[in-house]
Amino acid sequence: MVIVAGKGGVGKTVVSASLARAAARTGLSTLVIEVEGKSGLSTLFGQPPFDYDEVVLSPGGGPGGAADVRARTLTPDDALIEYLEDHGMSRISRRLAASSAVDMVATAAPGIKDILILGKAKQLERSFQNDLIVLDAPAAGHAISFLRSARGLVDAVRVGPINAQARDVLDMLTDPARCQVLLVTLPEETPVNELVETAYSLEDEVGVSLGPVVVNGVYPPIEGLEHDPDDAAADAGAFLHPGESHALRAAARFRLDRMELQREQLERLGGRLPLPQLRLPYLFSADLGPEHVDELATQLLDGITSLAELAGGAA
């Protein structure tokens, strides 16, 4: 299982989608789990919205011989009902859910909603029906408390099924062979700072194993930006419209500036967090769809390949 975490607005869902697509392309049948409704994952695959029931986002087969990407949403309420039904308490489960007693239970034992979701995710992982599960974790600071819920509950609830559930989840989270956390960020100051903080608290407080950091939105380089537009036009034998030279120059300056800022932040991230980085390009077309997910999946696969080569070379 790969848990994709990062603060809001860094493109966590796009990364989850691309990762799932990349895995499917290498033949791994992949399930994406959403825990907060309405993330736009279905749109990224050009599909209608989905719910608690599993749907296929992109079917396998085709010339590449890819595997399926499937998806479902997990909510604490649904997970609780299912849990109670599985444990012979189906008579009371609906009534409990309908009376919104989940709120009271969740307050009585903080983290219980998270553990219900993680417990269900763990059950899916143990069912071995998927080669890979990608869990799109809650945004912002919630990611830490979400993943910390297992350890908290093991201490808070000493006996009973919740304790057992929390122990099982903790076993999964802390076993690097079963679970890795992929942190996503942008090459900007605040997101980098928050990512570094999150990385250390996840390692220290939860004991999860961290995969490479995905840095989203890195400007791809373009040739020619250092050159003066008038000179470049002369070289190319072109005539510029009035005002064009100015616009070309300003836009080039802007990109070079931002690339420089990004480079500084990437370096700072590398300095503060000794984890390999996978970089994904900034996509200028604002409405992301299946073709962009595919493009990013390619970039991820390339990145993973070169990381593997790097690791191979170092060994």
């Binding site: 373009i222 040739e223 020619g224 470049a232 070309l248």
Partner: peptide, 9 residues
Amino acid sequence: TDLGGLYDN
């Protein structure tokens, strides 16, 4: 050409 890059950007 360099101009092509500038236009692309």
